[in-house]
């Protein structure tokens, strides 16, 4: 197993409140890893430590390491903008910018210095095709992204995330606010994307974790209780608490 991201003894506090208690886990390349657990268990917080989005929140203290391709992303010489380009993120609620569909996708590449119109056109088309949105929007690229449906908006956000060619995509309950049809489309999309990208997703939906993830990690009260292949974790959980959760006894 080739781990692209690895966390070691990762601890995180908001003020005095410890949210993550020494998380150590490895995330393999080109697979879908699902983080599951009840609300407030720390899975979303953990996800956000992986591209340092927690830096944006004040009053956070982090110890331990997160290694991306063998290098600690919390070491001082790391360029956070470069890191976030390589580890992209799709959020819980679709959050397209209030601009045109085209501009939404082109924003990332422009941020990283691409100015040529033809090149941008290429990236936009390629990203929208990769997120299976191209056919639906190719005739109205210049219209506002806010006019799209929720599911389309979320696929646009995925297109936006892959427009900068990341190697990892973090998804924070990215289908939670969508209807089943849109959710299905995005799940299909993720299955296709995993050949090129490593996907780490937080989900509340255990069926979803079973359907599409290769590996699964169960969080409870800031602890990583158990992680392993999805099949194994759901068939033969090692820990009582995992069993209790996946059989629906709490959560």
């Amino acid at each position: 197993m080739n781990a692209i991201i690895e966390s070691r003894n990762l601890k995180l506090w908001y003020g005095d409140h410890q949210v993550l208690k020494s998380i150590s886990m490895e995330i393999p390349e080109h697979e879908i890893t699902a983080l599951i657990g009840p609300s407030g268990c720390g899975k979303s917080t953990f996800l956000k430590t992986l591209n340092r989005m927690n830096d944006l929140v004040g009053n956070v203290r982090i110890t331990g390491e997160v290694n991306y391709n063998g290098k600690n992303i919390y070491s001082p010489e790391v360029d956070v903008t470069k890191l976030r380009r390589e580890i992209g993120m799709v959020f819980q609620k679709p959050n397209p910018f209030p601009m045109s569909i085209y501009e939404n996708v082109a924003y990332g590449p422009k941020t990283h210095g691409i100015r040529s119109k033809t090149e941008l056109d290429g990236i936009v088309e390629e990203s929208l095709k990769a997120s299976a949105l191209w056919e639906e929007v190719k005739d109205r690229l210049k219209t506002s992204a806010l006019g799209l449906s929720g599911g389309q908006q979320q696929r646009l956000c995925i297109a936006r995330a892959i427009s900068v060619h990341p190697s990892v995509i973090l998804m924070d309950e990215s289908t939670a606010s969508l209807d089943p049809v849109s959710t299905g489309k995005i799940e299909d999309l993720l299955m296709e994307l995993k050949s090129q990208y490593t996907v780490i997703m937080v989900t509340h939906n255990m069926q979803q974790a079973v359907r599409i993830s290769d590996r699964c990690a169960f969080f409870l009260m800031g602890e990583l209780v158990e992680s392993g292949s999805t099949e194994q974790l759901f068939a033969k959980p090692q820990d009582k608490r995992t069993e209790a959760y996946i059989t629906g006894r709490f959560g």
């Binding site: 380009r85 590449p109 990283h112 210095g113 900068v164 060619h165």
Partner: peptide
């Protein structure tokens, strides 16, 4: 994508 040079970053 690694188009930005060191100078540009600075």
């Amino acid at each position: 994508m690694g188009r930005r040079t060191k100078i540009e970053n600075t």
